[in-house]
Design a protein around this nucleic acid. Structure first.
Lengths: 217, 217
DNA sequence: TTTTTATTTGAACAGTGTTTAATAGTTTTG
DNA sequence: CAAAACTATTAAACACTGTTCAAATAAAAA
């Protein structure tokens, strides 16, 4: 059965090649610049061949989305070193925002675009596993906070959505250029806007009583 | 000069006709379903004619965006009846979220899509006047709060971006179907999800010390 | 070597935003 | 009134897009 194995290997290789080409295009040219024809010409195959390995374009986007989630999760994994759950929660928030600003195209794919999820609905499973894990890790840290006496008596489910909404909203407003139209003076360049996002997040930390003063009460 | 006036009237009429057709298509079929050819056939003109009244498609989107902003501002205007600035701030937040959930296509156009702003960059003015007014009204109410002793010592600029990010993030996560994958049980239907958005916003109100308990301190 | 099977692709369909050049319709001028 | 000038409109084309069908090629089995 060595022949079949070789075939399968070729098949999975081509699948990976398609995905790699799609990823390169997506990160360089963005969503607009990632067409089936461009992916095909990058791997020197005909556009029709793509459809033998991916049912539709959204399937490729979904696969790329998955890569993005793994990337973000690997960043979160590092933060497990932080013992204090409250500090870890804050670190997750900062890490999330940093990821969004550093990987705008990935972030778009993961949390903004509807297309990848469309493919999910058509497919076998209806569960958004990778996205779920991200929010679950937030929930986990939050429950850790409650065990240490923070945010007690609050539903961690609603609280996690609140935190997620805060960082997501901030990221999207900035990435889509809706913040640059209201920034003070002429601070529309990247480093200063990064500082803006940081500053706003710190305000959020302050107002949600995530500050260390709560630690001593 | 009656002839020239008649001509101008015809011109502005056709402009309005195009916009009305585009609006109808946009609200019914969404962005995807709003093509130049469809707009043209709706007003029974050729696609080329559209370009005599709008430089590009994004110009039409920008005009529709403006209508959306006026709609939202008219909703905010009603809230001027609320005398207490803190209550008005909360009412604005709820009104904003309600608008987003009730007018998903408009919201997309106003605060998510990049396309309308692209047209703005190409045009004469680089200022996003209509969007600015929305955030300015938030800033105004916030400063009213500070005059009454709420959120003192805080930069109203950062605070307003924080509040905006919170409601925006919540709206977008919900509208783009990213919340429905994490909702408890099977509460993916509209009315219950509305309640979810409300509940999360109330948590935000609580955590930012916008609750009435702050009133009596 | 022929038949069967797996893999790849050219061509086409139905769209998209946009531009160029040609055509009708109207007004002004000689 | 006829001719020139100007305005409004559009047919056709360009360069794309995602996707599908049937034909062609390459590889394996009989």
């Amino acid at each position: 059965m060595g022949i079949i194995e070789r075939k399968d290997k070729h098949k999975s290789n081509l699948r990976k090649q398609i995905l790699a080409a799609a990823k390169a295009l997506f990160l360089q040219e963005g969503y607009e610049g990632t067409s089936i024809r461009k992916i095909a010409s990058a791997i020197e195959y005909s556009p029709t061949t793509i459809y033998l390995y991916y049912r539709e374009k959204n399937d490729i986007l979904l696969a790329l989305q998955k890569e993005g989630f793994q990337l973000l999760r690997s960043r979160f994994a590092i933060l497990s070193k932080v013992d204090n759950p409250l500090e870890r929660l804050k670190a997750i928030g900062r890490s999330y925002l940093q990821f969004a600003l550093e990987n705008p195209e990935f972030y778009e794919l993961m949390f903004v675009m509807k297309e990848p999820l469309k493919s999910l609905e058509k497919g076998l499973q209806k569960e958004w596993d990778d996205g779920k894990k991200i929010v679950e890790s937030l929930l986990f840290v939050l429950e850790g906070c409650q065990q240490k006496g923070y945010f007690t008596g609050q539903d961690p489910y609603y609280f996690s959505i609140m935190v997620w909404s805060q960082v997501h909203g901030l990221a999207v407003l900035y990435l889509h250029g809706h913040l640059s139209y209201i920034v003070k003076k002429d601070t529309a360049n990247i480093p200063e806007s990064n500082a803006l996002v940081d500053a706003v997040f710190e305000r959020f930390v302050h107002y949600t009583s995530m500050e260390s003063r709560e630690n001593t009460v």
